[in-house]
């Protein structure tokens, strides 16, 4: 049983250079699995994330998601169905309305997808904050008063609020400090186990992608050039781009220090 099946996705941006951002891209995601999507900047991975979440329309190709023709949904039907596929963005500072409070941001999905009656919203907000490891006392605070790591946790809370099956994580930990990033990755792995979530983890950082992904797809110039189980893929790279990406991962040339 697959959760998402994409077939032949193609997208060309108009303009002088007619960049082919997606060129016949096909892949699947199973329920509860993380597919890591890796590639250098400009390879089309962010376009793919936006096409999946229906923020950008592809020129060609089909997307089946949760048994529906996801790519053909329109208007109200699409908005109702959107609760099943959520997204977390790279910049936790830009992903919220500039004047939003934590509680305000978390109530939006509750209202839009009729998750709970209005009187239960405060309880839901508290539960969501606890689920992402934040204190419920943050609820009345404006998001601008939170640190980057805290904001990204609120973004994750907002994404799980409508009880999705798939979350698209577009460079979701790239802007975070290493120590914060490690804890957010732990949180994502734990939420996946608890809620049976599937992730599309879009990143340019192979080490981070490897840590969280069951399978990895490698993109170059709008195409998926290589796909496979994470460890097996990295152990035997078949394409030049993957070999270069592996070589570019900075390593601390010492044994891990016992702490």
């Amino acid at each position: 049983m697959t959760l998402l099946v994409a077939r032949g996705l193609t997208k060309t941006y108009p303009g002088a250079r007619r960049i082919r951002a997606l060129d016949d891209v096909s892949f699947e995601i199973a329920p509860g699995e993380t597919l890591g999507l890796i590639g250098p900047s400009g390879c089309g991975k962010s376009t793919l994330a936006r096409v999946l979440t229906r923020l950008t329309e592809p020129d060609a190709g089909t997307i089946r998601f949760g048994g529906q023709d996801w790519g053909a949904l329109k208007g109200r039907a699409l908005r109702r169905a959107r609760g099943a596929m959520q997204m977390v963005f790279q910049d936790p500072g830009a992903a919220f309305h500039p004047r939003a409070t934590v509680a305000g941001a978390l109530c939006e999905p509750l209202r839009l997808h009729a998750i709970a009656p209005r009187s239960d919203w405060p309880d839901h907000v508290e539960l969501l904050l606890t689920q992402v490891g934040l204190s419920p006392e943050l609820a009345p605070r404006p998001l601008s008063a939170l640190s980057g790591g805290q904001r990204q946790r609120v973004a994750i809370a907002r994404a799980i609020a409508p009880r999705p099956k798939l979350i698209v994580l577009d460079e979701a930990v790239s802007a975070l400090d290493a120590s914060v990033r490690a804890r957010v990755l732990d949180l994502l792995a734990q939420l996946q186990r608890d809620m049976g979530l599937a992730y599309l983890f879009v990143s340019h950082d192979l080490a981070v992608t490897r840590a969280l992904s069951h399978r990895i797809a490698v993109m170059e110039a709008g195409r998926i050039v290589e796909t496979g189980p994470a460890e097996a893929l990295l152990a035997a790279p078949r394409t030049e781009i993957l070999r270069r990406l592996i070589a570019a991962v900075p390593t601390i040339h010492t044994e891990k220090v016992p702490s």
Binding site: E33, T34, A178, S179, R181, A182, L185, D186, L188, A189, Q192, L206, A207, V208, R210, A211, L212, S213, H214, R215, P229, A230, E231, A232, L234, I246, V249, P250, T251, I252, K256, V257, S259
Partner: peptide
Amino acid sequence: TRSLLAAHLDLASPRLVGEA
């Protein structure tokens, strides 16, 4: 410094999920 080193991820770091 130790906590910074522990947070560093490379291709030898422990993975957070099982293999596919």
